[in-house]
Amino acid sequence: MAVDQRGYSAGARPDSIADYAIANLVSDIVGMAATLLTQTGNNTKFHLVGHDMGGSVTWAVAEQHPELLISTTVLSTPHKNAFAAAYNMSGNPQQAASSYISVLQGSGGEAFMLANFYGSYGGVVPDATLFVSRFQNDPGALTAALNWYRAENFTAEDGTVVTAPVTYIWGSQDPFLLKESAVNTANFCSGPYQFVQLPGHAHFLADEVPQDIASLLQQQFAAKLT
């Protein structure tokens, strides 16, 4: 099941930045999963897959609710502690790679995205024009998306580790999330852990190499059937 998270649906788009705090995003996933599992009659555990901001939420669910997860797969996004360690180190290239975040958090974030969206995603995301059109025609959708950044959920370092099983998939040419934090992520996973590096690929892995990602997910799911 692929679901619209809060802000990405007109019917679930709160106005306050505080509504996009990580606690609420985690609660959304847990609640949606419980509802879907009840409807399908399956067991109480599920596989969880997330990318980018969704990957950050996936990590948080894995930290807080490992008992709910059969497997955890994160595309591109390192564990928050690995990211924070790199970002907070003076002179680390992660700071420059993440410089766009402060722009998106500011009041000019919407204008910046509308001016640069297609240049950033065109040629990488096959349906980039559809995304741009959606944001242009529904400004509330863009503000809600940027409120994920404005809630400042994802740069604080703490002592948490993940005990749930994790597969972390990262593209070696990711311009936003660099190698140091990707490699360091292993240090914050105490359960079964697999790091899959995709050489020559960048950030939008599900769009760049959809068949490769699908195969990796199928392997992940099949390995946990027993």
Rank of each mutant, 00 (worst) to 15 (best):
Val26Ser: 06
Ala206Pro: 04
Asn24Gln: 13
Tyr149Trp: 10
Tyr168Pro: 03
Tyr8Ile: 08
Ala12Tyr: 11
Asp212Arg: 12
Val57Gly: 02
Gly122Trp: 05
Leu217Gly: 01
Ser27Phe: 03
Ala145His: 08
Asn187Val: 04
Glu110Gly: 09
Leu177Lys: 05
Leu48Val: 08
Leu104Ala: 09
Asp4Pro: 02
Val74Gly: 09
Val103Ala: 06
Asp138Met: 09
Phe112Asp: 14
His201Ile: 12
Ile29Met: 14
Arg150Asp: 06
Thr58Gly: 05
Leu217Pro: 03
Ala82His: 04
Asn187Asp: 10
Gln219Ala: 03
Leu48His: 09
Thr35Ser: 11
Ser76Cys: 10
Leu177Asp: 08
Leu25Trp: 07
Ser181Met: 06
Ala156Leu: 11
Val161Arg: 09
Pro78Asn: 03
Gly122Ile: 05
Thr58Lys: 00
Gly7Asn: 07
Gln136Ser: 15
Ala222Thr: 10
Val183His: 01
Gly54Thr: 07
Thr72Lys: 01
Asp28Asn: 05
Gln211Leu: 07
His79Gln: 10
Ala144Ser: 14
Gln64Met: 01
Tyr20Asp: 03
Gly54Leu: 07
Asn187Glu: 06
Pro139Thr: 00
Ser133Gln: 14
Val49Pro: 01
Cys189Met: 10
Ala18Ser: 14
Val196His: 03
Val3Pro: 14
Asp127Pro: 03
